[in-house]
Design a protein around this nucleic acid. Structure first.
Lengths: 283, 283
DNA sequence: TCTGTTCATTCCGATATTCGGGACATATTG
DNA sequence: CAATATGTCCCGAATATCGGAATGAACAGA
């Protein structure tokens, strides 16, 4: 309460229980992550995502709690989404659900995600090798997975497309570090904290530089359990016509099934698939 | 009593705020509808919508022109969307496409609880025909089931919404193969391994091409126990206004209850339902 | 009928975000 | 190599967003 300028505003019963003793702090401790810096876009999509994710259409307050935003803010966001035709309310006018415009976008968007040609090339590779593969690209100072094809083995990792991993302890990440020009690399290396994930993670900048030089010379990058224990990887470059690195195509497997040495036997298949991907990407 | 509920709450249909003189007939034929005052949310979705709608991934400036916003603004919006995982750039780093997170949201958004009109149309169809039906779309090189309505018979299949099936041995899958443009089809056909699921699965590429031509001519696709023994299917296209294939609407049944020949008697009902789905999807 | 509770909605000042012109950097083209 | 697109960055100004608190509506139980 600041400067209650309202003077004779006739406050009816004055309600002494303004501080209800029931829940002093309900969700205050819960909102730690989407606090600041969240753009309006991110908030709107978080809301949409929550509604799509839920099995039942939520009410406004349920959403507010779930998103960790005040009710008033939730209301504003929902109103905007509703006016945009992305949400609509059910007959009672209380619960929110996906609107017609969003349904329309969704129908088109499902087919417009990844290039079928690329996905097909990766599936063929998985078929031939028998282990999972993924396609990753540099975004900022991390690797994002653009696409991913899993093998049939019961034991598999599960990084979905879109997830991000660090540069210094993944095959594709080291590949990108190795292939970028000197000043950029040094700049990034300086700003990275070489976080240790396993025993084998390279956390010494000197050793990492040596490893990168080795990768540059070899033309491919290995990951010997540097990110997760028991998991190895092997990544080859996807180059465009001018020799620039577009992405890294990698296979990975539990070391129980595939050793580093064995994995290099698949280099030819990997390179072949990488060439196909480069080609269908118009490179 | 019917209309008493929403009396006073939605009373402001007008815009009491400001109706500046710019609003009346500002829309000439060039800088059309993307007027000023659009919220950040609206702009973001307009961008997403444009990308989903376009047949080819646009570049930044193309989008800026299409949306009628300055280049710098477009750049800012796209960057935000990209960081949110909703968009991603293709390998050249120039063209923008739907990102994995958006694909996930889209998949959920079309689910049964969220899109009552589609679900209702499918339930009417099941009611009329007496067999299960499903709605499937192309994602990568597989078909994902968007929605599904089961019939009352005790013997039924159980593919939940969200599960994926191959292209070459399902009615909807063959439908998509038949309708895609030549180069893409050939590329996918080349890279697919036509895995045999039953005696009747088409594993010969030549025969599959012939079958696809037949499907193109007929305008619908059949599945004669090619995926599971004793199970047939029949899928018709759900087309948008421009004739692009959005999804396949299919019925399926045990052959003991419905023969392929009998199933074609339901083509009219299927097509009618497909048209309804296209319509409520805003196509 | 009255009262306590829950939920949706509105108000409003402070402030953080968005906006977009223009400069700059980087392909692409002739 | 100049010339033309196209992508990226900067920064002051404008304004949309934020969220606490008050208000209104619906409902349940006494």
């Amino acid at each position: 309460m600041a400067e209650t300028k309202r003077t004779a505003k006739r406050l009816p019963p004055a309600r002494p229980d303004k501080q209800p003793a029931k829940q002093p702090e309900k969700q205050s401790q819960k909102r730690e992550e989407k606090n600041v810096g969240a753009s309006a876009i991110e908030k709107a999509f978080a809301a949409l995502e929550a509604i799509a994710e839920l099995d039942e259409s939520p009410s406004l307050s349920q959403l507010a709690v779930r998103l960790g935003v005040p009710k008033a803010s939730a209301h504003r966001i929902m109103t905007q989404l509703e006016q945009a035709g992305l949400l609509q309310r059910d007959l009672s006018g209380k619960r929110l659900r996906i609107g017609p415009r969003m349904a329309r976008i969704a129908l088109r968007a499902i087919g417009a995600t990844n290039q079928p040609e690329i996905h097909a090339a990766m599936e063929r590779l998985v078929q031939r090798i028998g282990e999972s593969c993924n396609l990753g690209a540099l975004q900022g100072t991390r690797i994002v997975y653009l696409d991913r094809v899993e093998c049939d083995w019961p034991l598999r990792t599960h990084f979905r497309a879109g997830s991000q991993v660090p540069l210094h302890c993944t095959a594709t990440g080291k590949l990108f570090l190795a292939f970028m020009d000197e000043p950029t690399r040094e700049d990034i290396l300086r700003s990275l904290t070489l976080e240790r994930h396993t025993e084998k993670t390279i956390v010494d900048p000197k050793k990492l530089r040596a490893e990168l030089a080795r990768i540059r010379a070899a033309g491919y990058a290995e990951n010997d359990q540097e990110f997760m224990v028991g998991l190895i990887g092997l990544s080859v470059p996807v180059l465009d016509a001018r020799g620039r690195l577009l992405a890294g195509l990698a296979i990975h497997a539990p070391i129980a099934r595939l050793s580093i040495v064995q994995s290099t036997a698949h280099l030819a298949s990997l390179r072949e698939a990488a060439a196909v991907i480069a080609k269908v990407s118009g490179a």
